[in-house]
Simulated assay, not measured.
Amino acid sequence: MSGRDRDAEGRARSARPRDGLGRPLPYGEPGVARQPEGVVRTPAETVAEAQRLLDAGMPFHAHEVFEDAWKSGPEAAAPLWRGLAQLAVGLTHAARGNAVGGARLLRRGAEGLAGPGAAGPAYGIDVPGLVRWARELALRVEGGQAVDAAAEAPRILPGDEPPAGEGG
Rank of each mutant, 00 (worst) to 15 (best):
M1Y: 06
S2W: 08
R4P: 03
R6G: 01
D7P: 02
D7A: 12
D7R: 10
D7Y: 13
A8D: 12
A8S: 12
E9R: 14
E9M: 08
E9D: 13
E9W: 11
G10H: 05
R11F: 11
A12M: 06
A12I: 15
S14W: 08
P17W: 06
P17R: 03
P17C: 00
G22T: 09
P24I: 06
P26G: 10
P26F: 00
P26V: 01
Y27V: 13
E29I: 01
E29R: 14
E29T: 15
A33E: 13
A33D: 12
A33P: 14
R34H: 06
P36F: 00
E37F: 00
G38Y: 04
G38E: 05
G38A: 04
R41G: 05
R41W: 07
A44Y: 09
E45T: 08
T46C: 11
E49K: 10
A50G: 12
A50K: 03
L54M: 08
D55S: 15
A56H: 03
G57M: 01
G57V: 11
M58V: 04
P59T: 02
P59Y: 00
F60I: 00
H61T: 02
H63Q: 12
H63G: 02
E64Q: 00
V65K: 01
V65I: 14
F66Q: 00
E67L: 06
E67V: 08
W70D: 01
K71Q: 13
K71L: 15
S72F: 07
G73R: 04
G73H: 04
G73E: 01
P74C: 02
L80I: 09
W81S: 02
R82V: 02
R82P: 03
L84I: 09
A85Q: 13
V89D: 11
V89K: 01
T92Q: 12
G97M: 07
N98E: 13
N98Y: 06
N98A: 14
N98R: 11
A99I: 03
V100F: 13
G101Y: 09
A103T: 06
L106W: 10
L106A: 11
R107S: 11
R108H: 10
E111A: 15
E111S: 15
A114I: 07
A114R: 12
A118C: 12
G120L: 06
P121S: 04
V127K: 11
P128N: 12
V131C: 10
R135N: 13
R135E: 14
E136L: 11
L139F: 02
L139N: 11
R140T: 11
E142Y: 02
G143F: 01
A146M: 07
D148C: 13
D148H: 07
A149Q: 02
A150I: 14
A150F: 09
E152D: 09
E152L: 03
E152T: 14
E152A: 15
A153D: 07
R155K: 06
I156W: 01
L157W: 10
P158G: 01
P158L: 00
D160F: 06
D160K: 03
P162A: 04
E166F: 09
